[in-house]
């Protein structure tokens, strides 16, 4: 019975990724594309994806833009407040490695300089389809984590 419940929970985890979106200093190009996903044209709710404003209730963190010394703390805090299991998606060229700003004096670099990133979505900006695909891939990552956990390892240490 307990095993069954665990399996149900795993099913639920894969079917209900709640997304929190943090803009680290993007030019808003990526953010517009994220918003596009929520419109009826792309209708991400079909996959159970909901955009929540609260990292404490989110499963997936979407980060766009370059990380700088001011917001790296915020990014880390938001990530820490998410409950396990969780995944992070870095959006766009800036999120990946700082993009065209990577040489700037106030840029730390990509998102993965601060928190572990599971999925990278290139593009300037990425297409909405790519973002939706990234969430699906992130779910695969969560599934991997869960399988690892089933084999007795800690969940996403």
């Amino acid at each position: 019975m307990k095993f069954d419940l665990q399996q149900w929970i795993n099913t639920g985890r894969l079917k209900s990724p709640w997304v929190a979106h943090y803009d680290c200093g993007s030019c808003n190009g990526c953010d517009i594309e994220v918003l596009a996903c929520l419109t009826p044209v792309y209708d991400v709710e079909r996959f159970g994806i909901i955009n929540v404003g609260n990292p404490k209730q989110a499963d997936v963190l979407l980060v766009s833009g370059t990380v700088n010394p001011r917001n790296r703390v915020v990014l880390k805090n938001l990530y820490d407040q998410m409950q396990h299991p969780k995944a992070v998606i870095a959006l766009g060229a800036c999120g990946l490695n700082g993009g065209i700003f990577q040489e700037a004096y106030n840029v730390v670099g990509g998102v993965d300089k601060v928190i572990p990133v599971d999925v990278y979505v290139p593009g300037c900006p990425p297409k909405p389809e790519a973002i939706i695909d990234a969430v699906v891939v992130a779910l695969g990552k969560i599934k991997e984590q869960l399988e690892k956990a089933d084999r007795g390892q800690a969940v996403n240490g």
Binding site: Q6, W8, I9, N10, T11, G12, R13, K15, S16, W18, G48, Q57, D59, Q83, H84, P85, V155
Partner: peptide, 13 residues
């Protein structure tokens, strides 16, 4: 979907 959501939430650490 509501059941999936609740099951997932139950499984959160």
């Amino acid at each position: 979907q509501p059941f999936y959501d609740v099951l997932k939430l139950l499984g959160k650490r």
